[in-house]
Amino acid sequence: MPDISAWFNDLLSGNLIFTPTTLGYYWTGLVTTTQLVFLSLVIGLVLAVPLAIMRSSRRKWISLPVYVYTYVFRGTPLLVQLYIIYYGVVFFDGIQQSFLWPIFREAFYPALIAFTLNTAAYTTEIFRGAIKATPKGEIEAARAYGMSQGLMMRRIIIPSAFRRALPAYGNEVIFMLHASAIASVVTLMDLTGAARYVYSRFYTPFEPFLFVALIYLCLTFAILFFFRFLEKKLLAHLKPQTL
């Protein structure tokens, strides 16, 4: 173990920018970015499935509210949403005394809320498109079996919609990772925040930003492989047949 740390210190000696301290910042940044993106995607996905079903409903009073929500969140920049949620909430009188304050006091939760609402809006629209695109034949076959609307949704429409939505959703995951780079405007030390800190401390833009760009690239590759794996293995039986 001492060997490794000696080797490591040796490797880092003679440069000011990649020190154990700054690498520690990058590590904190990586952890924050991963947590933020992962949690917002999971919660966003859980929200998006029922919202997409509501959005595909023929009843206006069910689909319209969801449409308004997705329209607002897709129609405004994420940065603006983040500012409103982080700085805007404090203008409500008495928020500091309310039970919500422990959540809004930290920068992490307002950022998580903004990211979640944003990704849920996009994911809702992705799924809604996939649900709409269900082949007529599948629905007719389900009806012919006497399936109820609910059963048909659960067994036929949702699973095949998932398959169709997967490539578009993979893109959304990558976009979300990249969009998370704005978290540092609300004092979060994410990957970009770490790079900005090192940049402003050592006045060197290239090293820190190139370094985190590489980390983002690696993360993106991991996401790409994960989705390719999902598409190939888990949902192979739903793959469009080429015969």
Binding site: Y87, V90, Q96, A107, T187
Partner: peptide
């Protein structure tokens, strides 16, 4: 330590009791 891009944002968060 919370780091801000502008002194303004910092004062805003001071008022917000963050």
């Amino acid at each position: 330590i919370s780091r801000y891009s502008t002194a303004d944002d910092m004062v805003l968060d001071m008022d917000a009791q963050r």
